[in-house]
Amino acid sequence: MIHMHNSLAIRIRRAASAISCLALVALTGLAHALPAADPLKVVCTLPDLADITREIGGDRVDVTTIYKGKENTHALMGKPSHLVAMSRADVFVQVGLSLESSVVPGLLENCRNNRIQPGKTGFVNVSEGWSALAVPTVLSRKDGDVHPQGNPHMNLAPSAGQHMASVIHAHLVLVEPGSKLVFDQRYAALVKKLDDASARWALVAKDWKGRKIVVYHKEFDYFADAYGLVIQGSIETKPGIPPTPNHLASLIDTMKREPGAVILTAPWSNNDNVEQVARETGAKIVELPNMCGGTSGAETWIGMMDTIHKRVAEALPTAPAAR
């Protein structure tokens, strides 16, 4: 009798375990199939990344942005609101390539949020897999504020939209697989918009190859590289190093000997040095956004690139200047 009783008890326990497992599997499946109630808290460094994240995430993401749009990307200081947002975030999105090194390392270390630390699915480095320009073969401060991983201004490459969107999409799906369908659909729509925009920009820039530009900071190298624009020089002596009188004189001399360049500058760098070079060489100054929000019309990443193409097209001479 006792033996029978024990057998029954064992069978009941096994049945209960099986039901529990099935219920757990069903609940897990349900949880993955249905979006969670609260949107993902996403902190993006640049407004560019915020725009792309919103495009893909829709109402499944609640996005906070660290940069506002007119800053020197290498000089921003962190604020209390940044620290608090990072401490609560499910996902953190950065450009990387040491672009945001003035603010991100301190925030990452102090926010103590394990979900967004490097290596976790919530840490999104959109330059991951990107072929950077100007990767230094020798690292020396003699070359100014060098970035060990290469030129960090990849957000200004016309092809960067697709790359950034691809990385952000992949991470959002990893963090919230239950919203995969939503993310996939919105991502596909964004890629279509980006492809259309790329075709539009290629048309605008079809005659730009060989045209000369001068930059204040090496922010527009990817943009120039995409269309074969020739960077005649930079107003900064070296990246991050303000110009010396000798350097300015040398640059002005070169621009006078080989005229035709336009000066590309960002809102933060449109300063007295730029004016001096323009005044002494007769070159046009073109102020361009270096991230979304930098100027009117640049509220979205596609809008920003439209603005950049339009302003450069308006400033460049209609025919290549005589060399």
Partner: peptide, 9 residues
């Protein structure tokens, strides 16, 4: 108290 302009510079 710290204040910086839009450029951060």
């Amino acid at each position: 108290y710290g204040w910086s302009d839009d450029s951060g510079l």
